[in-house]
Design a protein around this nucleic acid. Structure first.
Lengths: 218, 218
DNA sequence: AGCCGAATCAACCAATCGGTTGATCCGCAG
DNA sequence: CTGCGGATCAACCGATTGGTTGATTCGGCT
C-alpha cells in the first residue's frame, strides 16, 4: 500500500519542521515537498506532477505572511491552476473565526484543523482528507453546524466587510470612501449589523463580533 | 563540555515538535523538557531543579492560549517563583509589536526571536542567551532602538480601566455609571487616551490598544 | 410574474461623541 | 513650599453616530 504523499505549506520553518517530524511518526504518510506560501505550493504541485510523483494531500496554513494565502491557494488548486488533478487540501491553522472557516470551506478545502490539535487528531484528519472525506476539528464542525442552523443571524458579505473596517478604527465617512459608496449606505449596513448582533452602538458590535469570532484580530 | 539544557514552552504541539527537531540538529543543545504554558514551565523548572537537572535556557512563546503567557512567566522566573536560580529566557514568537517586545524585555527576557527566523539565526540566539548575552532578531533590535528614541507614554490605571470598559461596548454614560463618576470625567479620560494612542475616535483607540496588547480580548 | 434579500441612496432629527477651555483637589517628590 | 500628574467636573459647540422612514435596482427563486 503506497504512502499518502503530502505537500506541507506554511511560512514558518519551525512549523514545517514540526509537521515534518509529526507526520514522520504517522504510518503510511510521507512528506514529499514543502512550500512557504500558496504560490510556491502551486509550483511544487506542478513540478511533482511533471516528475510523475503526484501529491495526494496538501496540508496548508491560511496565513502566509506576504505570500499567497491558503484560502486563495485552495481555490486555485481546486480550479486546476496548478496544472494537476486537484489533490485534497487540509487546512491547519491557528485561526478559528467563522469567516476563516467559511472562506476555506467555500474555496474547496477538504478539512480544517487547528494547530493546537493533538497529533492523533491531525493524523485522523490527514487520513480522512486523503481518502476524500471531510475532516473538521470538533470545534470547527460545531461552528459550521451552528452556522447552518442559524443562517438568519449571519452577516452578508458586505456587512462583514464594513464590520471589519469598523473594527480597524474607521468612521462612517472613511469606510464610505474606502468602499466607494455613500455614507448613507454605510449607516444602513450598520443598522442591519447592529440588529443582527443585538447591539446599539459600534463598540458593542465590535466586541460581540470578536467574541463570536465573526471577525478576527484587527 | 556539557550540553545546553533547554526547556521548550509553547502551547502548540506542532511548534514544540518543530523546535525539538530543529534543536536536535544543533550541536551542544539538548531539549530536556517541554511545557504548554507559563504555569507548566514554572512547575517543570522546579521539578528538574529538584532532580538535580537544572535547565540552562527557557525557549518560550508569548501567547499560550488560556494559560499563563510568556511575559508573565518570564517575570515569575526572574523573580525566583520557580524555586530555582533563574535561567535565561529566550522568547520565540510570531508577535513583533512594540508592546510585546517591551513587555518581554521589561520582564527580563534575555532574547527575542521571531518564528520566521531561519534555523541558524535561532541557533545563534540559543547559544548567546545561554551564555548570558542578549539575543535579538535584527528587526527587534531596530524596534527597541527606535523605542528608546521615542518613548511612548503609558496609560494611567484609570485610563486603562476606561479603555477596557469602552472595548466591551459601553458608551460614555454607561461607563460613567459603572465607575460612579460623571460623563464629563469619562470624556476627559478619553481625550487623554486618544492623545496617548494617537487616534481620534473610540474604535481606533480600541484597535490600537489591541494591536499593542494594551488591552486583552473583550 | 411576484417575492425576497442584498445593496444602494436620501432626508430628517435626536442622541452621543469629540474638542476645547477652564477649574479644583490630592498625593508625591524635590 | 512648589510643581507635577492624576482624577474629577462643568460648559459649550461642532461633528459624528444612531434611528426612522422612504425609495430604487438587481439577481435569484418559486
Amino acid at each position: 500500500m503506497a504512502d499518502i504523499r503530502v505537500l506541507l505549506v506554511d511560512d514558518h520553518p519551525v512549523v514545517r519542521a514540526g509537521l515534518r517530524a509529526m507526520l514522520a511518526d504517522f504510518d503510511g504518510v510521507t512528506v514529499v515537498a514543502e512550500a512557504a506560501d500558496g504560490g510556491a505550493a502551486l509550483a511544487e504541485l506542478f513540478r511533482l506532477h511533471t516528475l510523475g510523483e503526484p501529491v495526494d494531500l496538501v496540508l496548508m496554513d491560511l496565513q502566509m505572511g506576504a505570500g499567497m494565502d491558503g484560502a486563495t491557494a485552495t481555490g486555485r488548486i481546486k480550479a486546476g491552476d496548478a496544472g494537476t488533478p486537484p489533490p485534497p487540501v487540509l487546512i491547519l491553522t491557528t485561526y478559528d473565526t467563522d469567516a476563516d472557516i467559511l472562506a476555506a470551506v467555500e474555496a474547496g478545502a477538504a478539512g480544517y484543523m487547528l494547530k493546537d490539535a493533538p497529533p492523533e487528531q491531525i493524523r485522523q484528519a490527514v487520513l480522512s482528507a486523503a481518502a476524500g472525506q471531510t475532516a473538521l476539528a470538533p470545534g470547527v464542525a460545531a461552528r459550521l453546524m451552528g452556522h447552518i442552523r442559524n443562517p438568519v443571524t449571519a452577516l452578508s458579505p458586505r456587512e462583514l466587510q464594513i464590520l471589519e473596517l469598523l473594527a480597524t478604527g474607521l468612521g462612517n465617512r472613511a469606510i464610505a470612501r474606502q468602499l466607494f459608496i455613500s455614507e448613507a449606505t454605510v449607516k444602513t449596513h450598520l443598522v442591519h449589523i447592529y440588529a443582527k448582533l443585538g447591539v446599539d452602538n459600534r463598540t458593542a458590535a465590535i466586541a460581540v463580533a470578536r467574541q463570536r469570532r465573526i471577525i478576527r484580530d484587527s
